[in-house]
Design a protein around this nucleic acid. Sequence first.
DNA 1: CTGGCTCCCTGAATGC
DNA 2: TGCATTCAGGGAGCCA
Length: 276
Amino acid sequence: MPELPEVETIRNRFRRGADGTPSLLGKHILRAELLWAPTLETPTPQRFRERIRGQRVQEIGRRGKYLIFHLDADALVIHLRMSGDLWWEAEDAPLAPHHRMLMYFEDGRLAFNDTRKFGRIWLMADPAPLFTRLGPEPLEERFTAEMFYRRLQSRRRQIKPLLLDQHFLAGVGNIYADEALHRAGIHPQTRSNALTPTQAARLLEGVRQVLREGIEHNGASIDWVYRGGGFQNSFRVYQRAGEPCYHCGTAIVRLVLSQRGTHFCPRCQPAPADAH
DNA sequence: CTGGCTCCCTGAATGC
DNA sequence: TGCATTCAGGGAGCCA
């Protein structure tokens, strides 16, 4: 499930280049091909092909879980959602299953592969409107614990679903939310406005810790969605229901909040008075 | 404002 | 063995 660390890993791979993958910076897009039309949010497939042709990749950025290819005249924005991934392959490689969009360069092709078809692509001159409602970037230093505390105080939602809300904080998904709450010793159903300044600071630190660790490990490889990362070996609660907490030995509990599996240690993350 | 639920979609796991 | 059902999850949208 691509979250911030996985998107950042992909961004770095195509920005710097990696084994078997060249840097895309400065390369020209010869042509693009759409294999499953609903992947493209805007513009129409025809205009997409016309506009993207001949543009050069100037820079590759990220905002939350959005991957942004800055081209000469437009921005190509990609959200991988559940199962999206970008593959670099030979221009004449046989078409793998679940490819949704192809971009051809001089020396190979970039394929957007997305088994579950939830991923989306935008091509627009100014992508800013896509990001106006997104919450702050958790890794940016100018976003302080005090600001985070104030933000938490302004809402009265359960902290786990709130962390998943991209309008509240950008980039955190189900895995990293559970891992961050465990590191901060906070129960997932704690009301956001019930958190103390100390807890808020610990939570922001926990979020940053797991995100940085995730990036260091090139992200997490979950189930059959393989991305080559290794952070899944560092999970302390995610998908460990019934197994002992590494800190206290208590069995990890799984419950469902906002339709999302939620994992926590009932001893290290004690329930607030109003949780049931 | 908050929470609960559905939808989108496919492959893996489970059930009979 | 084989077929059917259930489930996971990011995010938008709907309703209470």
